[in-house]
Design a protein around this nucleic acid. Structure first.
Length: 450
DNA sequence: TCTGGGGTCCTAGGACCC
DNA sequence: TCTGGGGTCCTAGGACCC
């Protein structure tokens, strides 16, 4: 069983009521007053409540309507200015990078630092001084935002440390004292134990981490599953050797929207899907990435939520394809009663921008077609099936598929380019669409039927 | 005026391959 | 010959986090 470090070398920083703190910094009239940042519409929820607002019971993830009920007149309800939060976040993250090259940013307002990768005195006194100095520099550099710092022998201990002493906290958990800190805590304070797991554990009499420690691995796995069960078993013993990893690659990109009133009109749903696909694709292209799986998320009037996905033969990063696939997925869903939310996502991301991602012997097979210029390949539209919603065929040198909406999108892979974000041609010129019925053998529609 | 929007990881079943 | 695996990919849903 992998263990823990013998010294407290991991720091966790959590900025206090971050969005609200930035608002109070930028608007002095809001200082000392309850501030709630989040969705301000009828279906909005709270992102962040200032500590003044928390005193009235406002909380993250609460509906804004509920927060309005609880907070007194004069409370500021703000929609949020993400550009300002992002700039301030960067200032803080830069300060962390002065401590160590190993900084893992978890969100705009949270990060881990591997202090052992820097040159630091890891004694409790040394760490306390380091944290005090860091907090002061954050406050100065941001113009008033404060953060809570936890330091421990693992990510979990550091995070629990910052949690236990916020706001404006500083807690060093010395190596060796982990279980003393952990065992009295309610299981719900362990990261990864949410409402569902908390209820299951409570049902068998496990309320504190100490209770958890008394349970066998077998019992915990039977209770909450293999991965989660063994994770809890280890956490109860403060066993956590997850590394601090900077620059994690994104695995999916998505956009979703909740509508002020439920949607029923099919044309409207389709135009919303196009809008969402546009947003997703803009971000994919900005990142130079593309993905093979397109997912449609669908929430009904009654909050029941479902997803439908389709994996394509090649990664895609263009709006037409993403929205066509998502629109087609919509067709298989019962929409009666109205749609509260739609979402479009792309996963299975692969970055093809750099040429050296592939080791030579796993390089994609390049087809030996003669004359093709990879920069301006000719559309190789040889197959088309007007009645087909989405169909594709292996064309040897590329892929073709069309939508049954009266237009055909031809996508193919330049023969000399790696399988990547393949180019898309909207074929508006009927001359490009083969007049012949397709020669449609073999691989018809492998992935598009449910 | 119940329940946002962006993610990650895990599970489970079926298909398919070896 | 029969039966039984394992491994991977895909889909759908769920838990959790900020």
């Amino acid at each position: 069983m992998q263990g823990m470090r013998s010294e407290a070398g991991v720091l966790h920083l959590d900025l206090d009521a971050f969005f609200a703190a930035v608002e109070q910094r930028d608007k002095p009239s809001l200082r000392g007053k309850p501030v709630v940042v989040g969705g301000t519409g009828g279906r909005g929820v709270v992102s962040t409540a200032s500590y003044e607002a928390r005193a009235y019971g406002a909380r993250s993830a609460m509906s804004t309507a509920e927060a309005r009920r609880r907070c007194p007149p004069g409370t500021a309800f703000l929609g949020g200015r993400f550009a300002a939060y992002s700039v301030t976040s960067r200032v803080v993250m830069d300060l962390l990078r002065e401590l160590s090259p190993l900084v893992e940013q978890v969100s705009v307002d949270e990060a881990y630092v591997d202090l052992a990768a820097g040159d630091h005195d890891l004694s409790t006194d040394g760490l306390t001084a380091l944290a005090r100095d860091l907090k002061e520099r954050i406050h100065t550099a941001t113009g008033g935002v404060r953060g809570s710092v936890g330091i421990g022998s693992s990510k979990t201990m550091a995070k629990i440390g910052s949690e236990l002493d916020k706001p404006d906290g500083l807690l060093v958990v010395p190596a060796g004292s982990e279980t003393d800190v952990l065992h009295p805590l309610p299981v719900r304070s362990l990261p990864g134990v949410g409402p569902a797991t908390g209820d299951r554990l409570s049902a068998v009499g496990v309320r504190t981490v100490g209770d958890l420690h008394e349970r066998s691995l077998t019992d915990l796995v039977a209770l909450v599953g293999q991965a989660h069960g063994s994770g809890l078993f280890r956490l109860a013993r403060a066993l956590d050797d997850r590394p601090v990893v900077p620059d994690r690659e994104a695995k999916s990109v998505s956009a979703e929207r909740t509508y002020a009133t439920d949607l029923t009109d099919l044309g409207r749903l389709q135009s919303e899907i196009r809008w969402l696909a546009d947003r997703v694709v803009a971000r994919l292209q900005k990142e130079g990435t593309a993905g093979r799986t397109v997912t449609l998320k669908f929430r009904r009037y009654d909050f029941t939520t479902l997803t439908r996905s389709q994996t394509l033969p090649q990664p895609v990063d263009d709006a037409r394809t993403v929205s066509d696939v998502a629109t087609r997925l919509l067709a298989g869903i019962d929409r009666t009663g109205g749609v509260r939310l739609l979402g479009v996502g792309v996963s299975g991301l692969a970055t093809y921008v750099q040429g050296d991602l592939f080791a030579p012997d796993e390089a994609p097979v390049v087809l030996d077609t003669e004359d093709d210029d990879p920069e301006t390949p000719e559309p190789q539209s040889r197959s088309w099936h007007p009645g087909q919603d989405v169909a594709h065929a292996d064309m040897g040198a590329g892929w073709v598929w069309g939508s049954g909406l009266g237009r055909v999108t031809v996508r193919f892979e330049g023969p000399l380019t790696p399988p990547g974000p393949v180019r898309t041609y909207a074929v508006d010129d009927p001359a490009l669409v083969p007049a012949e019925p397709p020669d449609w053998r073999g691989t018809e529609d492998q992935n598009s039927r449910s």
